[in-house]
Amino acid sequence: MQESAWGWLIITYLFLAGAGSGAFLAAVACDLLAPDWSKALAKAGSLVSGPLVAIGTLCLVLDLEAGLWEPWRQIYLANNLSSMIAWGVIVLSIFIPIALLYAAALNEIGFIGKFANKYVRPLEIVGSLFALGTATYTGVLIAVVNGVPFWNTPLMPVLFLASAISTGLAAAMIVAAIIDVATIKTLSNFALGHVIFLSVEALVLMLLVFMSLTRSTEAAYSANLLISGLLSPYFWGLVVILGIVVPFFLSVIEYLEYGEMPKALVVGADILVLIGGMSLRALIVFSGTPPQII
């Protein structure tokens, strides 16, 4: 009777896969929708996307035991297509190369970059589909687990997708700032993205918690753990205030003040979004409560 089999490695995976696929979507959006001044962000997003997802996947592999000690066992991972993990393996193994190829294409890295540059549009279309798949999949992975009623809701993939886009955007913006601090000014355009997706995330999170309170005793127990129980300081502090409310208002100001906000605050808002995203996943995993069976 082990209460939770999954720990920090899985949580890190859930976070990194989300952030990585979100960064891809952000990069594609910049590349397609925005004029030249946003190219920096597209490049940064594409650069960060593949590696993040790959590191996340590495966490997933590190969490294995027999499959880690005897890696050839991993070929069985797609044996049973009624398992979400099997689909995850397929999605990830397609998405990671596409993301890396896209990064090479946008940044014109070496010979492969030059070659792939000719197929940027197809890469963007197919990649976006798989990025959406990867981001959603992290939510579906735990949403289909009927052993934990709190997770077992269609809201979970929506929440994870919203959070993936916010965190992906944040990751892309931080990397863009690292590459060239001057771009920060132009990044303020994208603060609107944060405003939108943080709002969506907040809304879905609110729905999840409220609906869980009445869904089943176990789900209510989990929700109560978050809002008033043992985990509540982390939930309110890390997820709600630091992860959503503060960056939301910073982003609103940033958007309105276009380029006038101190650089530290701009990057700070993005870091907060990342902390919130990671905390959100950790708390959802840790608050998972199995059904009362006796």
Binding site: E70, W72, R73, I75, Y76, N79
Partner: peptide
């Protein structure tokens, strides 16, 4: 079961 080929077969 140790050994690549036999493992593949055993699956």
């Amino acid at each position: 079961a140790v050994g690549g080929a036999s493992v593949v077969a055993s699956s």
